[in-house]
Amino acid sequence: MSENPNNWPLWEVFIQSKRGLDHKHVGSLHAPDARLAIENARDVYTRRQEGNSIWVVPANAISASQPDDAEMFFDPADDKTYRHPTFYSIPEGAKYI
């Protein structure tokens, strides 16, 4: 964040393109407060009906996993193939399963 108190803080913008879909990160922008962040997000990210709903989050409120640790962090999911339906053999002839 910058030293000058008149510089607007950074917000991350999430947009739901249609009812029923999830909000997706689209980018970021600077704004003095949440209300103007939403209005600016409308102007910057939805000039062609790309959105039905907007979320804005102060960038410094987001916590993230470490890319350097990613391999190890996500490793436990690797050896549990029984979590996937394809792990199981189904007798021939069984339907709808």
Binding site: M1, L10, E12, H25, G27, S28, A59, N60, I62, S63, A64, S65, Q66, D69, M72, F73
Partner: peptide, 12 residues
């Protein structure tokens, strides 16, 4: 994502 320096990171 545009989360640069002001981000809290959980270090292991």
């Amino acid at each position: 994502m545009n989360i640069q320096p002001p981000v809290k990171v959980f270090k292991r």
